[in-house]
Every structure is written in C-alpha cells, then in structure tokens.
Amino acid sequence: MAYKPFQPCPPDTDNVAEALALRGCQPLPRRRCFSRTPSKAPPISSLPGTANPFPASLPDSSVLWPPSAFCKSFSCLPAHLGFDMDAEAARFLLPTRSNLDLTVPQLLRIAQDHSTPIRLALDVGGSSGTFAARMKLDVGAVVVTTTMDLGAPYNKAAALRGLLPLHVPLQ
C-alpha cells in the first residue's frame, strides 16, 4: 500500500484492511494515516442520535459509501441488519424465544436487586449499537460497542447515534 504518513489514508477499494483485521492482523500503514471523512458531514451537535439514540433516520451524507457498495444509503440496507430504527427501538425489551436471552429490564432488575448501578459497560459484537443505545436511553450508562463494518457501516451508524463505537474484531 502506498501512502504518505500523517496524510489522509488512500481509499481501500478492495476492503483489504477489514479482511486483515478479521484475521487478527492490523494493517500497520493505516495506523499512520488519517481516515477520510465526508466533506459535508453535519456538526456532531446536530446529528439525530445525540439526543435520542433511536432517530427516525440516519444521515446518509455522514458516511463515505464505498464506490463498490451495493447500497449507498441507510434506507437501502435490509432491515434485519439493524438499521431500521423503529424495529431496533423495541429490541432487548421483550423476551425472545430463548431462555438464554437477557433483556434490558431483566438486567436492570438484577442490578437493582444487588444495589449496583450500571454506569459503564462493553458490548461485544454490538452491530449498529442497539443495546448500547437502549442502556444510554434507559439508565444513562456509557456502553462502548465493538463493531466491524461487515457489508454495512456499523461503526459509523453507532457513532451517528451518539454512541462510542470501537472498531475491533472479536479476536
């Protein structure tokens, strides 16, 4: 990869960086260049997720959509990927078909029974950050969400929702 240190990173048209990170390798040159940002990104204070982490929609102009991407807007992405904010607002509230699932109300009840406030947490594999958003909205907790941009801009979506995304693989 050809790049100039301390300059904007070259475009990763083949998603080499993501593929390397998934296999436990961090592409070293990317540590010394700056990630590109959209030229018309709105100020953080005006983003829809800063007050409510379940906005009606996420601004498409805040993401640099890859030229090779099938979708170039959040509305184009399938709802099951976690970008339908209406559906996501109800996740983690009601029990699902598995007894192993822990809903947010159950978690808060356990914390209350033990007189332990939840202030900080780590959500591993957080997708678009729905669990972190629910914890932020319900108890004001700060939840760091680990994300990977696997076919969709999960990391950017979590940041647009006013959350703390951490772009790392599960390894």
Rank of each mutant, 00 (worst) to 15 (best):
A2S: 12
Y3I: 10
K4V: 15
F6H: 10
T13A: 11
T13G: 14
T13Y: 14
V16Y: 03
A17E: 06
A19R: 09
A19Q: 10
L20H: 01
A21Y: 04
A21P: 09
L22N: 15
R23I: 04
G24Y: 01
Q26A: 15
P27C: 08
R31T: 10
R31D: 11
C33K: 07
R36Q: 15
T37C: 09
K40C: 13
A41P: 00
A41S: 11
P43I: 01
P43Q: 09
P43M: 06
P43L: 07
I44R: 15
I44C: 14
S45C: 13
S45I: 05
S45E: 15
L47I: 07
L47D: 09
P48G: 05
P48H: 09
T50C: 12
A51D: 15
A51V: 10
A51L: 12
F54C: 09
F54V: 10
S62K: 02
W65M: 07
P66C: 05
S68P: 02
S68D: 12
A69L: 12
A69P: 00
C71W: 01
S75R: 11
C76K: 04
P78L: 06
D84R: 05
D84H: 06
M85H: 03
D86F: 14
E88K: 02
A89H: 03
A89W: 01
A89P: 01
L93M: 08
T96I: 14
T96C: 07
T96N: 09
L100Y: 14
L100A: 12
D101I: 10
L102S: 06
L102A: 05
T103H: 05
V104C: 03
Q106E: 13
Q106D: 09
L107S: 02
L107D: 03
L108S: 00
L108F: 10
S115W: 11
T116F: 14
P117G: 05
I118C: 05
L120S: 09
A121G: 11
D123L: 07
V124P: 01
G126Y: 03
G126M: 05
S127I: 00
S127T: 03
S127H: 06
S128T: 10
G129R: 01
G129L: 02
F131W: 14
F131D: 00
F131S: 00
A133E: 02
K136R: 11
G140Q: 05
A141V: 13
A141Q: 03
A141N: 06
A141L: 05
V143P: 00
T145G: 05
T146C: 06
M148W: 01
L150R: 10
L150A: 09
A152Q: 08
A152M: 11
A152R: 13
P153N: 08
N155K: 12
K156P: 02
A158S: 08
A159N: 02
A159S: 08
L160S: 01
R161C: 00
G162P: 00
L163C: 04
L164W: 15
H167R: 08
V168W: 10
V168D: 09
P169S: 14
P169I: 01
L170Q: 06
